[in-house]
Write a protein that binds this DNA or RNA. Structure first.
Length: 587
RNA sequence: GCGGCAGUAGCUCAGCUGGAUAGAGCAACGGCCUUCUAAGCCGUAGGUCGGGGGUUCGAGCCCCUCCUGCCGCGCCA
């Protein structure tokens, strides 16, 4: 059975509290890990907390608490320090017991039952399938994947979901863009609108369609342009011109649908399938898997949008104004009410999102985590409002915002503008710095903080690069263990009493911290804490490795050190796995 | 203008939800390779936690206010 010092110390302190302050059983006993090594392995501020109710000097209370502490063979010493902190130092036997614990649990070490099997849905990326994923999506992907792994490791039952926006205007624009390129290939050029999709991949899809179907979908350019509102004059950029441009684009879509008839859905379906496959493939290569790909269009096809809106109507949260149907989101704290159905009868994106969230609740998730780009934060009040208006428990819904990543090369920001279809894609980034560095760099900052992604650093094979620093520690341990040549399984039973050095005990303390880090990181939806922990653990090991030789002649000492190294390796593996980063045996 | 997020060492960032003398990594300076991977280690220096009030035994963290920066504020998605 593994030894948990925190629970153990809480038990001892609880006994002491019973003697010293029987009236104050409600005062929580906190066992903390001091920042400074000289403050012992664990500390409690109970005496400080009791100072007020007992109306006594905290240091005196601390003395009384210590006197009332049951004797323990696992404690090296108990001291009073500072204002009245009680510091505990464990015996080295108690500290080193973690090594056998790690080796016995292996890949499951650190796994927690904190989540108690709670059904959690994590929805992330959910990019429009209208083009390649760019570096902004990459951060959401890396964060969502690591967070999901972390929650799962912490005992939740996690479903990873990608919401496919396959119903909206953007998809129509992509289909139109592709068809326009296709017409160009057949010498029926139509002036290509600047607000259509201009990326090379669009022409690629047009070529595919031509190769498969020849001129089957060709129509004269004049026919297409016949009833379309004109594009604004070239060079104008005022609001009026912008609106004209959008009207022109919508006119082209309507005209194309008209001309192509049922062939429109072929083009639309083709580009959707292509882009979705590309997106999926990109994410799979990045080590990001989804359990469900949820189609927005299915919400319309099955009538879920209508029924969700009807439910809001019944609850009296809708009204009609200027021909449109509005949701009174201001009731729930939003700045203004929001349209759910336009005057032209079409539902807004918000309407299908309401239905989508209703569906999430209906699927029985006890916790729903939406991961959005930080630029969507203004969207939160209306979605939470809709959830409440539907009579659902808004506390189950959490929105985690992910800030943009800014790429730096040679100390300069690299342009990420989407105009002219030129943006840095996730695939390009992965190709340049590798999956490991990309996954790690994306999550090494708090997700709601801006991220400066230094491409040169991510590529560098030096100690500056935290990915290599951690992986190098792992590879070093592999190298030593393979030179020893024994079976790792045999190390589980190793007597770790020879481990008495300061660095060895510090390393044991670090290993013990892993479980705490998992629970804290899962609780705060903060996988970056894993990244920081791994850097610390790798640092502790490198330091130890440089100070002591592992393969010494003294057999018991050698085995104990190898067991410790093997335990460090295991925890590095477990942590890296959570982040989706490989743990190479050689570098 | 309103709302959201942020401001911590020269740079990039942590800071375990209010605890002890605020921590890392770069960059700077000085050391360590005939010995298990120097992609590493050891040491030195570096701070008015944006400013000012407040709350209490105790504040980088909580409240108020001001300054600065980023983002959002469509019958787009």
């Amino acid at each position: 059975m593994s030894f948990d010092p925190r629970t153990y110390l809480m038990g001892l302190m609880s006994t002491a509290r019973e003697t010293v302050a029987p009236e104050n059983r409600d005062t929580a006993i906190l066992i903390e890990r001091p920042k400074q090594a000289s403050h012992g392995d664990f500390s409690s501020n109970l005496a400080l907390q009791l100072a007020k109710p007992l109306k006594a000097n905290p240091r005196e209370i601390a003395i009384r608490l210590i006197d009332a502490l049951p004797p323990s063979a696992l404690l090296e010493k108990v001291e009073i320090a500072g204002a009245g902190f009680i510091n505990f130092t464990l015996t080295s036997v108690a500290k080193t017991s973690i090594v056998a614990d790690v080796l016995a649990k292996g890949a499951d070490f650190g796994r927690s039952s904190l989540g108690a099997g709670q059904k959690v849905q994590v929805e992330f990326v959910s990019a429009n399938p209208t083009g390649p994923l760019h570096v902004g999506h990459g951060r959401g992907a890396a964060y969502g994947a690591s967070l999901s792994a972390l929650l799962s490791f912490a005992g939740h039952s996690v479903t990873r979901e990608f919401y496919v926006n396959d119903a909206g205007r953007q998809m129509d624009i992509l289909a139109l863009s592709t068809w326009l390129r296709y017409l160009e290939l057949h010498a029926e050029p139509v002036p290509f609108p600047p607000n259509a999709y201009r990326g090379d991949y669009v022409m690629g899809m047009a070529v595919q369609i031509r190769d498969a179907h020849g001129d089957r979908y060709v129509h004269p350019a004049e026919a297409l342009l016949a009833c379309v509102p004109p594009a604004p004059e070239v060079g104008r950029a005022d609001d009026e011109a912008k609106r004209q441009q959008e009207d022109h684009l919508d006119g082209l879509i309507a005209s194309a649908k008209d001309l192509l008839g049922e062939h429109w859905s072929y083009v639309h379906g083709h580009v959707l399938t292509e882009q979705l496959a590309d997106c999926r493939n990109d994410l799979e290569e990045f080590g990001v898997h989804f359990d469900h790909w949820f189609s927005e269009r299915s919400l319309f096809d099955t009538g879920m949008v209508e029924s969700a809106i009807a439910r809001l109507e019944q609850a009296g949260h809708l009204y009609v104004q200027n021909g449109a149907t509005w949701f009174r989101s201001t009731t729930f704290g939003d700045e203004k009410d929001r349209v759910v159905q336009r005057d032209n009868g079409l539902y807004t994106y918000f309407a299908s999102d309401i239905a989508y969230h209703l569906n999430k609740y209906e699927r029985g998730f006890e916790r729903i985590i939406d991961i959005w780009g930080a630029d969507h934060h203004g969207y939160i009040p209306r979605v939470c409002g809709a959830v409440q208006a539907l009579g659902l428990d808004a506390k189950k819904l959490e929105v985690a915002l992910v800030q943009f990543a800014v790429l730096y090369r040679d100390g300069q920001k690299t342009s990420m503008s989407t105009r002219a279809g030129e943006f840095v894609t996730l695939r390009e980034l992965r190709g340049e710095v590798g999956n490991d560095a990309a996954r790690f760099f994306y999550v090494m900052r708090k997700s709601d903080q801006h991220l400066d992604f230094d491409l040169d650093l991510a590529k560098s094979q030096s100690n500056d690069n935290p990915v290599f620093y951690i992986q190098y520690a792992h590879a070093r341990i592999c190298s030593v263990l393979s030179q020893w040549g024994g079976a790792i399984a045999d190390l589980i039973a190793t007597d770790c009493q020879p481990l008495t050095g300061e660095r060895e005990l510090a390393l044991c303390g670090r290993l013990r911290e892993f479980a705490d880090v998992i629970e804290a990181a899962a609780g705060e939806l903060a996988p970056h804490q894993i990244a920081f922990f791994l850097k610390d653990l790798a640092g502790d090991f490198h330091s130890y490795y440089n100070a002591e030789r592992l393969l010494v002649d003294d057999q018991p000492l050698k085995l104990a050190r190898l067991a410790l190294a093997a335990a460090v390796r295991q925890v590095l593996q477990n942590g890296l796995w959570l982040l989706g980063v490989s743990a190479p045996e050689q570098m």
